[in-house]
Amino acid sequence: MTDTSLDPVPGSGPRTPPGTGAGTAHLGDDPAAPWRRSAKPGTRGRKQGALLRLRDEIPFRTRVVLACTGIAGLVVVWLLAAAWSSGAVVVPTPLATWNAFTDYWRSGELSTDLSASAVRVAEGYTISMVVGIVLGVAIGSFRSIEAFWESPIGFLRYIPATALTPLFLLWLGIDESPKIALIIAGTVFYNILMIADVTRAVPRELITASYTLGAGRLRVLCRVILPHSWPGIIDVARINLAAAWLMLVVAELLAAQDGLGYRMIQSQRFLQYGRMFAILLIFAVIGMFSDLALRGLRTLVAPWARP
């Protein structure tokens, strides 16, 4: 083929197939064809750049570079803010924050606070997840249970869980129980509703196929609906874990003798900006690692469902 594709005159040249008259040029020869508008002359289709393809992979190295740039950007913003820091708005430098962190660690307070907070979240969120799985799977599987629970849950979930704090403190005292109750109240409705959605996403054919293979309802529930739902349930756990930490901090800010949220309030009293920043970063790091851990659990439990 010579460069006939660049031939500006339609219907001329060797591309007119024999048997077609001169007037019936091949469709591709029409320079005014609507699809030409989106293509460069001499090419067909639109070439896409490497970086901004919708939902497409980018090269691994580009990925690493972009991720590092993102982190670096965050640090730069922090450094700039610390440089501008003045009497009214104090922003500690990264170094000051690191020093505050090591102080916090050496004093032994960090480990007490961390374990106190982690235990509260673990207890509250475990209960919330268990309730969420039991009720969510039941609601997603049985229309009757859905009909019964849907309206009360739909009603109650609009009460901001943080608004329950004073009541819980009055009812349950100031020890562990109101904090755990608050974590449950702040997450359980989301867990139930999202897990119900995960369960509803089990394809109908899988369920009917199981019936035709002789499975009873209990077997379908345990051997079909649950295995299909586990990866989705773990994703729900991962997403709502942030809400559990949110509720924990609210509870600890108001009434606690230890815990990261309590230490935050203490640091405010003594104007320990470095320590406050250190605690914020600790939250971020905990969140990041639990996210990674739950992603790992997902691949472990359901290698077949890799996205």
């Binding site: 054919e205 009917t208 196929a209 035709t212 295995p227 077949w304």
Partner: peptide, 11 residues
């Protein structure tokens, strides 16, 4: 029964 669409258990 063999269904019109694939209905194998992916796990």
């Amino acid at each position: 029964m063999v269904f019109q669409s694939y209905s194998l258990y992916p796990w």
